[in-house]
Design a protein around this nucleic acid. Sequence first.
DNA 1: GCGGTTCAGTGAACCGCTTCACTCACTATC
DNA 2: GATAGTGAGTGAAGCGGTTCACTGAACCGC
Lengths: 349, 349
Amino acid sequence: MPFVKPGTLKAVASRPGRRTTIRELAEYTGLSPAAVSYALRGMQVSAETERRVREAAEELGYEADPIARALAGGATAVVGLLVGSLADFWNQELVRAVQRELYGAARSTLVADADGEPARELELARGLLDHRVDGLVVVPIGPASGDWQSIAREVATVTIGDALPGVSAAGEVVFDHESGVRASLEHLSALGHRRITVLSWAVETSPDREAERAVGASAAALGVDIDLVACAYSLNGSRPLALELLRSDERPTAVLCLSDSIAYGVYAACAELGLSIPGDVSVAGFGDHPISRLLAPPLTSTVWDIDRTAEVATSFLLQAIEADGPQATLRDVVEPVLVTRASTAPRPA
Amino acid sequence: MPFVKPGTLKAVASRPGRRTTIRELAEYTGLSPAAVSYALRGMQVSAETERRVREAAEELGYEADPIARALAGGATAVVGLLVGSLADFWNQELVRAVQRELYGAARSTLVADADGEPARELELARGLLDHRVDGLVVVPIGPASGDWQSIAREVATVTIGDALPGVSAAGEVVFDHESGVRASLEHLSALGHRRITVLSWAVETSPDREAERAVGASAAALGVDIDLVACAYSLNGSRPLALELLRSDERPTAVLCLSDSIAYGVYAACAELGLSIPGDVSVAGFGDHPISRLLAPPLTSTVWDIDRTAEVATSFLLQAIEADGPQATLRDVVEPVLVTRASTAPRPA
DNA sequence: GCGGTTCAGTGAACCGCTTCACTCACTATC
DNA sequence: GATAGTGAGTGAAGCGGTTCACTGAACCGC
């Protein structure tokens, strides 16, 4: 609480050396520390006592120490946020949005960044647990595993984007990747593109992901040729790859990037090579970061509503934390909306 | 440590229910918990004992519990990162960069976002302290105050961007705003602009900031008219303001935005109003976010090297944490580099 | 051979909160 | 009217480290 709620400041600032402890509060109210502890959490005590304790807490500016509370097994009001890559702009926005929601719920955020390496995910998650986070929000990039299951059993866990199959998380906000991919490929196909390169960060890390499977399925249905290529998750990561790709003899006429950040790298590469978008190559993104519409040219992309995603995920998490026991998995599917802008155009003759 | 260092995973995963404690390790080695504690931190014990303890720790997969350590007054390996606004893209990148540096130093990050409200800063900083962060990285937006001084005394604090005057922080990575502003205004002035609007997020929150003072000084020297306008720190915040500004009868011919994010809002507004950049209005940013060069048109901006800033700030912080006592303030000045791109052009006739 | 250091290691208190097991007073039950 | 049952509150034992004050042995020089 103190981390985010008003009122703290004055109190803490006015302490001479150290903060008020529960024992002092107990002494002040003439109760035992145990009673105070219960009262503050609204358990076991009479209404009258609770009122008295709260009043005293107010007067003395008492705020429970999150660290002590954590050690004793209580809640910390800290939530862990584990993202696959902070270099990805969509994820950056997500962090902001989740942070904001959690601030509203009087909780702070321990952020961990797997930096594109799936192998780090579990390690980071464990680290978050070591810090006694009350809950975990994960944007997974790696495969599910038994370790995840055991983590999900230990702490309320909500996934965003892809679910962790076989893991009974407290909540899942999943993207309907399949329909997003299909819509994008249909769009490009309708523009006459027959050879499309799909750049995905997940090709190697979780190749059986829905999105990648959808690529194959849609391609078959549409009769287009697809090159599915693994690509780092960021502007700087995708630029070199895009350069190589666009320099090759068999340059595709269209590139679908499974993240806007990747598309930005393609833009940078095109600029370097003097290629025109969409004159020489059409580019589509995924996620629709707020900046994408401002690019030259504005990027065709698929909207995954960041604020709503964060809001739903947070609400799932808070519900799970309150419930404090295994519940049925809360689930929400985010439907994509394809926004066509000037970065995609009919295939050049 | 466990948060980030390899080796943890196996160990922790293999625990049946709970992790190894220092007492178990003591029993295993035949020493007292105190000796083990000292040994693990390389104090007071013989080399032989230290070796034995480390070996045993390895075998048992022992990792100190950060929470218990924190309560007892030790280090947590958590660093607090307080930014003025996570809605600002430059700050988002900074968070990523700092995170990355800290990961390299086996530390995790508690992120707090003042969301553009200076009044929240201190409260959030206090909250970070409650969580016993070993250090604090602050990108301040509000004024300095005695409270900051007391915080800086309690924990190693490094500021980025603006310093907190009067506060003896452990480190300061300051931007040479003055020279950045001067270069930008000279550039616009040289292009013939005589009425320039400067959009700054700091006008109200810290009006005596160097950057804002520099605006006045440079304007006088160059003989241009300046409107210094307060503006929220993000795309969505600046767009409405920009709309209003550009719709007015006295539309400026040039806008200098003291953050690229603000410039993005101006871009969005121009798009809505059908105004051409730089045909109708020249726009310059500040910070040079990696995306700025990809906009339509590419944004003239002032480079503040994010990765280097993060690197220096982190190294200052780590030095201060190691030193663990008041030292002289470490200081680094980041020099701006103006990059002129297509968003600025001669004043329309 | 003796007082004085130094070094390695010990025991116990403590950080501030939670919770278990228990008491005590009071009410409901037969 | 004795017994069980309940609700409110207490005491003390943790949680897993750190650290202070202390002991015992080895070493020092004279």
